[in-house]
Every structure is written in structure tokens, then in C-alpha cells.
Design a protein around this nucleic acid. Sequence first.
DNA 1: AAAAAAC
Length: 488
Amino acid sequence: MTPQLDAAPDLAAPARFDTLPLDAKLQRAIGDAGYETMTPIQAKAIPIVLEGRDVMGAAQTGTGKTAAFSLPLLQKMLKHENASASPARHPVRALVLAPTRELADQVAVNVKTYAKHSNLRVACVFGGIDIAPQTAELKRGVEVLIATPGRLLDHIQLKNCQLNQVEYVVLDEADRMLDIGFLPDLQRILSFLPKTRQTLLFSATFSPEIKKLAQSYLQDPVLVEVARPNATATNVEQRFYSVADEDKRRLIAQILRQRDIRQAIIFVNSKLGAARLARTFERDGLRTAALHGDKSQDERLKSLAAFKAGEVDLLVATDVAARGLDIADLPAVFNYDVPFNAEDYVHRIGRTGRAGASGIAITLATRDDARLVGDIEKLIKKTITLETAELENDRPRRRRETEEAPAALNEPRPMAAPAAAPAPRPVRSRSSQDPFFDRPYEPDPKAAPVWEDSPAPVSPSAGVNPVSNPVHKPKRRIATLLGGKMPT
DNA sequence: AAAAAAC
């Protein structure tokens, strides 16, 4: 064998975590998690963070940015790990900010996993839930704090935590944290931190304007880019369909069946739209959950957990779910609405195709969406071909009188609408045009219980009829529902 | 045209 051939595999081999100068406690946790080799963003960013430099890191969705900042940050934190033994006040040493509560929670779960063999105390605070337990935890002292901006400001105001000795700040989804909606809160929070500190910004998307703005929050930063910013993950198949609004639901049903997709997130642009669409899929008997800002935090976390656990097949969500959420092996993402911001498109479809898996992203565009689709094309630098949706079963036959109606239709709908509520919409009149309703109903005895088993009405502020959930009807899995042929 | 983030 020639020396060249011997050398080649070594050069190509991805760097291993165990080559990093990380404490044995962290190495053990990495090993426990089953991680061996680093992703490109991890291989590049971790040594630079360890050096103490400010970093602006850009890498595609699903390539391990959380570990890229968490591991070196924890390494740096280890010098504080026995602060809990000291009777003095315990200042926060590292702060991680995230734009949504679910993402903050997820980051905290990750950081805690990496920190589990150390004595570091990691806490997470966000709004929508009882503040008292968070206050108690903060007062006992934490070294690493993960937070959403609003609740953190609350805690600052209440003097529940001391941020004047923060050494490390991470902005996860940094471009979002720096955008106009978050910037005032962010600036207030930063005003409580020491000027001398290490700042890390990570995202899959950075616009030129945000990049420039970000410079003012960084000192002599290193730009770590493993892909052109705004690049979509290469392992996600992207398709765009031109379709009328009223056909969108049927097209989704058709694609789910044709491509045998077992689970999907369906993104819509508004909370009301999410609540409504989720309700229609639910009426169709699909195991569906909704995730949007008009739901209680308890419902939001339950929706996400049920989806992650596979107890729910369709998650209808607003952009609250667009960024960062790591749902293992999610096969598909639908954009029921084209997102208003092209960046959000990159993040939405980044929920699939994570950690090297393949995924499919399907965007449904009406004729009014041409400009938004153009924006996406420009951002991701890929040519978009708008396909015309070929709807099967365009004129479904009417069910004959003698034929037994699907059980789903015969079941009494639990419409216990309060007297004040408007009458439920007449869903049945549309049923014969709806492929879903023409499916025979086969209860799946093995189907996992649906989390909504306790009444979880959509928030009235969402403007949806406050009918209680059809909870006692077993939900059908997509596979069961769509497994057979469509009626002709 | 919206969503998110505190009470």
C-alpha cells in the first residue's frame, strides 16, 4: 500500500471529541450521550471558544450548534463548580438566551446532560409558568442560567439573580434575538452584565444587517462559518406547490399518503390559523396537536412532548416552533402558509433532516405568495420550481344512501358548547367532498392515548369555537388513515 | 399581512 492511501482516510476522518482538551467529567458525559465525532461547526467553534474569543457562528440547522457552545462554556465554568459549597452569594457565571420558551427548555436539557457529572448548577427560567420555583432555585444559586428575555427581566427586577459577574453570554438564534422585536429587552439584559465578558452568537441565518449590528455586541470576534449563512440543510428535499387555499388541506393529505409520511409539522402564519387548521385535522380524526402562543404554557409543552413521543402525528404550529427545536427523525415539514420572512423558511424546514437524516419540506403557495417565494429563492440561492398540484379525486363520488356512513361521521360530536358560544361550524355538509371523511373508521386499539384526554379547549382568544375536544374517540394514525386507497 | 417574549 502506498503511504498516500494510508494517509487519506486519516485526513478525511472527522475529529473526535476525545481529542479536545475537555475535562474528564465532560468527556464522560459526551461518551454517555454516545457522541464520538464532531460536526464541522463543533470542530471549528469549540477550540476558538476555549481560547476565550468572541464568536459569531453560522452553520446549517441540525448540525449541533448547542453542543458547540455548551461544551466549551461548561469547561470554562468548571472553575466555579464548587460555588455551592460556599456560604457567599452565588452569582450567575454563564447566561444563555433563547427566543422561545420551548427552545430555552431544550437547551437547558442539553446543557444539563453535558454537566451531569459536575457540580455545576444549571437552571432555566421562562414565562408562562409559576415563577416561585424558579425564584427558589435562583436564590439557592446557579452557575449557568438559560432564559427567555421577558422572564429573566422579571427576575432581575425582583433581584432574584445577580448578573454582574457573568463571564459568558450566548445568544442562541442570535439573529432573532437581535431583531427589532427582541432588541429592547436584550439591550436591557445586557446592560446588567459586565462589559468584559465572552459573547457567543449562533444561528443558521444571519442577514448582512444583523451581522453588522452583531459586531457592536462583540469584541474582536471570530466569524465561524461552516456553510454560507442562510444555507438550507443539504439533506432536505424541498418542493413548492402552487395551490389554492381551499385545496391545501387535501393536498397535504394526499402527499402524506403518497409519500407514506408518518409524522409532520405543519407551519401556518397565524395563531388563529394554527388553531383552526389543527381543529380540522382533528375533526378528520388525525392525531393532531397545536402549538402557538395563544395556548397555555402547559398545553404548549404537552403538545410538543406528545409530538416528540410519537403520540401525535401532526403538529400544527406557528413560528414559535420554527427555530431550534430538535425533534428526532422528523420526516417532513409542510408550510401551509409561505412564511413572511425568508429566514423563517430556512429555520422551519430545518426541523427535518437533522443530524444527517433525510427529510422533505413542502411549501404550499398561492398566487399571492409569488414575492415571498422569490425572497426565499434569493436567500437560499437555489432555483425554486413551482409545481402545479395535481389533486387526485377532484370530484369525489357521493356516498350512496345504502352505504354505511363512516363511523367517524356517526359518532356524536362532543359539542358541549357553552350557551354563549356561537354554533359549531357545519362540518358535515362538506364531508362528502372530503377524502378524509370518506375513509372507513378503524379504531386502532394500540393507539397511544392522546394527551388531550383532559379537555384542552383552544384558547378563546384564538377566536375558535370553544367546543371541547373530541377526546373519547381514538385518534387514527396517519398510516391507518391513509394506508388504503382513496375513494374514487 | 405575523409571531415571539412578563405580569
